[in-house]
Design a protein around this nucleic acid. Structure first.
Lengths: 160, 160
DNA sequence: CAGTATTTTAGACTTGTTCCAATCTTGGAG
DNA sequence: CTCCAAGATTGGAACAAGTCTAAAATACTG
């Protein structure tokens, strides 16, 4: 079965994506993109081991610099939930938000709240030149709820 | 001059605040509260040096544990803007948000967006048990705008 | 195919934070 | 007012995430 014709399946997207962003096409970068496509919300270390299992090896530092390049180029979005390592996602451009689990850190996308985006305009900018509004919802994910949510969530939930 | 009658000026508030939260009243804790009242958004190290200048000395670890106790007791709110050390503020209970400067990290309060709080209800919770919605606005503060905003803000602003 | 700019790499290093066990202090009982 | 136990503070080591450097490897251009 044309195992070589299959090359046109998803990698070309990525190579072109890179070229379009004026970034060189390298194995590591394609690997990182492929991992991001699979993992949807991944931290550097997870990506590193994913790419390693694809390509044989990549250094953590390479992953960091590749991700930094992607973020700078605008093809990857980085989110940094308090208390968890930074996560990266391929989806950019649309203004969506995230739900993060207090317990395990699992992160899920949510589309913007009321359809429009009320959160992009604070009542007063206090003179700041705004460029982004970031909305993070905190809670307990279904999985952690089942496994007994009363572990360390008491204090956190009291303010609800 | 009644240098001792002055004790009733602001510390009693704090002592009572502590008692009310079932926390022991100690010099370090009062010092941290006083610093927070002054600094409004402060990281652990800044608080440590503030308290030190008030009391002569406090260890960084004490500040960390005091802050942790306060956060757990619900009298202090901790915010952790990506790329900056965690900040702490005395104001709790009302659901207000923050504007953070990309360049210098200065943080300012903003009242909730449209008056109500549209951000507390995402379109879909994906099964999560939500307890908080956190909104962070990113931009360049007035001060950094003056000092030439084109320093490292280019890449960051491109997505505007 | 060669030259050059860009990537990758390893390893040391920083920064913010937490853990630990020993010591000191607070608030309540007598 | 003194004593005690629970709780608070301390220093030191440890930690994880991420950044910096300079050298070796690789991709794109002509």
């Amino acid at each position: 079965m044309g195992s070589e014709a299959r090359t046109n399946q998803d990698e070309p997207d990525f190579a072109e994506l890179l070229r379009g962003a004026k970034l060189r096409v390298t194995a590591s970068r394609l690997g990182v993109l492929r991992s991001l496509a699979r993992l949807s919300h991944a931290d550097a270390e997870t990506i590193a081991s994913e790419v390693t299992s694809q390509l044989g090896s990549v250094s953590t530092q390479t992953v960091y610099s590749v991700l930094a390049a992607f973020v700078e180029a605008g093809i990857v979005r980085r989110i940094e939930p308090a208390g968890h390592p930074a996560l990266h996602e391929l989806r950019v451009g649309d203004n969506h938000h995230h739900i993060v689990c207090r317990t395990c850190g699992t992160t899920t996308d949510v589309d913007c709240v009321v359809g429009k985006r009320p959160c992009l305009t604070p009542s007063e900018t206090h003179g700041y030149l705004l460029d982004e509004a970031e909305v993070t919802f905190w809670g307990i994910c279904p999985g952690c709820q089942e496994r007994g949510g009363t572990l360390q969530s008491r204090a956190l939930l009291q303010g609800a």
